[in-house]
């Protein structure tokens, strides 16, 4: 027999209300779903194209975030340097910045006339806006804080004495990072990566502002949903949302079983 824990009412009631609050809009979506036309909607090539683009860009954005975010998190967690508090505050900026403003900011920095973008354009004839790479950049910009914050948390929670032990065994700081620290905080990195991926997948404002909206190139699922709704096709928008939802929930559930459970 397992001992039953009595849940205090002051916790149970808000918890239940919170759940309802989260689930209710989902029920709203399901209620408006035109189930009969669902199969033919699914078969539309635009849907597959947007979905494929979304999966590709959010995965690439997550990889980008891992490459830059994990070292950044490590710096914040392990190295004392002047202005560390400021850097930490700066990293959270994309969290509070409205994504559309984030998109404008990206244009001003990386756009064809932007600070760095103009240099890229002049020297390499390359500009990010309106390209799939631009979508990846916009998504990474918005999702990076999620990764950095959770990985930094994991690093701070990890016992630094393991790194000391590695040092006494002849490991340089780099080796100790790759061979000891990374495996130790792997669950934290995985959790951060999933969060990052989910945020990138749902990204809309920065993407449409920075990368524009063109089917097959920059039109990800959220943009397709918006455009469908804009054209007055609410049912179509609902269907697209459901597809996005179903795919992401499936992937997250699969990852959760594989990565996010601690033994």
């Amino acid at each position: 027999m397992t001992r039953r824990t009595r849940v205090p009412v002051p916790l149970l009631v808000p918890a239940a209300l919170g759940l309802v609050f989260l689930v209710l809009p989902l029920v709203g979506l399901l209620a408006r779903t035109p189930w009969s036309t669902l199969p033919q909607r699914l078969a539309e090539p635009e849907v597959a194209m947007a979905l494929r683009l979304s999966m590709l860009t959010s995965t690439l954005a997550t990889l980008l975030c891992l490459v830059f975010g994990v070292p950044l998190a490590w710096m914040l967690a392990r190295v004392e340097f002047p202005g560390r508090r400021l850097v930490r505050a700066l990293i959270t900026v994309p969290l509070v910045l409205p994504p559309v403003v984030g998109g404008i900011a990206l244009l001003l920095a990386l756009g064809r006339r932007g600070l760095v973008g103009s240099w890229l354009d002049e020297n390499f004839g390359f500009s990010l806006p309106f390209t799939t790479a631009g979508v990846v950049v916009a998504e990474a910009f918005v999702a990076l804080p999620f990764l950095v914050i959770s990985v930094e948390g994991a690093l701070r929670g990890a016992d630094t004495r393991y790194e000391e032990a590695a040092a006494t065994l002849g490991a340089t700081r780099w080796i100790s990072f790759t061979h000891v620290t990374l495996p130790l905080v792997a669950p934290g990195i995985a959790a951060g990566g999933v969060l990052c991926w989910a945020r990138a997948l749902g990204e809309f404002g920065a993407t449409i502002t920075f990368a524009g909206n063109f089917p097959g190139v920059t039109q990800t699922m959220p943009l397709a949903v918006y455009q469908t709704m804009e054209s007055g096709d609410l049912e179509g928008a609902v269907v697209l949302s459901l597809i996005l939802l179903a795919v992401s929930v499936t992937i997250l559930a699969a990852l959760r079983d594989r990565w996010l459970t601690t033994p």
């Binding site: 244009l107 006339r113 918006y226």
Partner: peptide, 21 residues
Amino acid sequence: TPVTLEQDVKAALSKVKLGEV
């Protein structure tokens, strides 16, 4: 062949203002 299909005329115009198109 446009590079982007904007959701309203102001957004389309701002892309010109910013020099992106």
